[in-house]
Nucleic acid binder design. Sequence first.
DNA 1: ATATTATTTATCCGATCGTATCAATTTAGA
DNA 2: TCTAAATTGATACGATCGGATAAATAATAT
Lengths: 224, 224
Amino acid sequence: METGLELDTRSKLLKAAVVQFGKFGFAGTSVRKIADDAGVNHGSIKYHYSSKDDLWRAAVAYLYGLLDEAVHKDEAEWKNMSPREQIINSATNYIRFSAKHPELSRIVFFETMHESERLEWLTENFIRPYTSRAIARVALAQEQGVYVDDVPAMNLHYVNIAAAKNIFLMAPEIKRAFDIDVFDDDQIEQHIDAVLKLTMRPEHAEEKPSPDGTDTDKNFSNVT
Amino acid sequence: METGLELDTRSKLLKAAVVQFGKFGFAGTSVRKIADDAGVNHGSIKYHYSSKDDLWRAAVAYLYGLLDEAVHKDEAEWKNMSPREQIINSATNYIRFSAKHPELSRIVFFETMHESERLEWLTENFIRPYTSRAIARVALAQEQGVYVDDVPAMNLHYVNIAAAKNIFLMAPEIKRAFDIDVFDDDQIEQHIDAVLKLTMRPEHAEEKPSPDGTDTDKNFSNVT
DNA sequence: ATATTATTTATCCGATCGTATCAATTTAGA
DNA sequence: TCTAAATTGATACGATCGGATAAATAATAT
């Protein structure tokens, strides 16, 4: 059958898997712990997902789906936005997602430290297509004067995403070292403001404003 | 005794531990694999280090020692430098170290994803003191006009270090996705140049130049 | 109501984990 | 050279791992 308990157990396992893999990575996570957290018998994992590896892949695909949703949710309105506004919009959505689901970045980090079949799968299916598009977008924004243009787009991209999500990856450390919860709404919005100020070219310095000029009276206050 | 084989076995174990913990984290690393890589019997770990945990702590302390050495190696000359030059010097040293020993950042990342006794030890002994000093230094540099001052020092600090080391953390991913080796000397220097350009305030925009004015004719080309 | 299928539960297996033990071997000091 | 200490090597133990199996139970269709 297709409803009720089956989906419930499946989704409970998926949610628990996201949390565990996000905290301990693939090697550090035990399927028995996932089953315990989900409140189901650990034999069910073999039934709903054929293996630990498959469950991990399902968790990754699920999170990337959420990411896609979050980053593109305002896509329909992009045509009414200046290049600068588009960057602000997608960067803001990306940072809010990174705060809401830090597990994705964490899982990717765990796997990106060494070669493996999982990294190959991850790269082919998600990282390469996603990053290629992102770097192309950065290069375009550089041409449009939203970002500085004297830095290679690849370096700028990796600095951007690192700046955006690093603070959420290190949340337990920051909480322990400074008693600051970076997941507080205030902290999130403060971080968005900081990242945009740091990564984007100051507005007055843009030498190539967008043709329609609608961005000239915009500033960061409209995203906080 | 204190020389010869003893130190050799100890240091071989330490080096192998750095590599393994840096790739797979604490949970994902087996002491048998470390012993294999070091070419010694795995029983020797219990002799030279009382446990896997102690070996991990020794590896971390060893790497932090190297970091301290790398970042402060030019400290004697800082008094002859402008604030801007000091930041360039320490940031450059930090990035070069991150490229030479990405294991430290990786090990810290593995542990900073969840609470644990290891994270407590790490935070108390290394992260908190190191980060406190770094954030204070950032705040000072903001006052000196080296960094923008409309962003909280904490956010700026975490953006800075993320920008500096992220690309080296993700080296296997970048190699696989774009066939670029970020550890090539050219790539390292290009990244240093990019990070400095992105994180530091443009020189002409500095409103508070250093009193002696020696930084007015400096640019990034002197650090590549 | 009954047969069939879908799902859950309870065990079991071989492999690997960290660690402990103790004999074998090497080294250093007398 | 002889003795004591330092170091290494071989092996074993209990725990936990992912995965497999089959019985028990729940749901569905006829």
